[in-house]
Simulated scan of single mutants.
Amino acid sequence: MIAVGEKIPDVPLTTVDAEGNTESVRSGELFGSGRSVLFGVPAAFSPTCSDAHLPGFVARASEISAKGVDRIVCVSVNDPFVMGAWAKDQQVHGVVMLADGSALFAKAMGTDMDGTDFGLGIRSQRYAAVIEDGTLTWIDVEDAPPDHEKSTAEVVLTKL
């Protein structure tokens, strides 16, 4: 897994907004300058992701930004259409939704997990991270997919 002090891997991804507008980006470019908060989730629309994880970052987006964060990014191994629908359903504002449809980013970060036994295939572990000018400065990964104590918006606020 990526370690503090290492550069964020540079792979192709897609951003999407609640209106379904998509844009191809590279992770190296997206995270290359400024300060970012990144959180990874195993699946859009899953109970923990939709009931607790994403809503916490949306609700606290202004507090996180006020601590000198340039962007808050949610990444999931889902296609951009699912991420767009999820953003619309969750009324996302203040959070960039990032589709990692082929798990390239999750694998490059070393945060991938095999959810085949649950019918999910390769997914991202649940985690939160702080990135400064393309370099990882903090990361914490949950022990199991339903857990969401280490990677909440409240925890991230204490790390900024």
Score class of each variant (00 low, 15 high):
26 R>F: 03
109 M>H: 00
77 V>P: 08
159 K>Y: 00
83 M>H: 08
20 G>K: 14
116 T>L: 01
149 E>N: 12
24 S>A: 15
27 S>T: 06
158 T>F: 12
147 D>Q: 10
157 L>T: 11
24 S>P: 02
48 T>A: 10
5 G>C: 06
85 A>C: 03
35 R>Q: 03
124 S>T: 02
44 A>L: 13
149 E>F: 05
120 L>F: 14
33 S>V: 00
89 D>M: 08
156 V>F: 12
89 D>Q: 12
86 W>V: 04
135 T>R: 14
40 G>K: 03
96 V>D: 09
153 A>K: 09
139 I>V: 13
101 G>E: 15
135 T>V: 15
144 A>V: 01
35 R>W: 02
111 T>G: 13
117 D>K: 12
60 R>C: 07
45 F>I: 09
1 M>G: 14
122 I>Y: 03
148 H>K: 00
110 G>C: 05
73 V>D: 06
116 T>S: 15
66 A>T: 04
108 A>M: 10
56 G>A: 05
130 V>M: 14
93 H>V: 10
105 F>D: 01
100 D>N: 12
51 D>T: 05
11 V>C: 07
56 G>V: 00
77 V>L: 04
67 K>P: 03
2 I>F: 12
93 H>L: 00
12 P>C: 06
26 R>W: 03
105 F>S: 01
13 L>R: 01
34 G>Y: 06
152 T>E: 09
9 P>C: 11
147 D>C: 08
2 I>D: 09
25 V>A: 04
16 V>I: 01
152 T>P: 04
101 G>F: 02
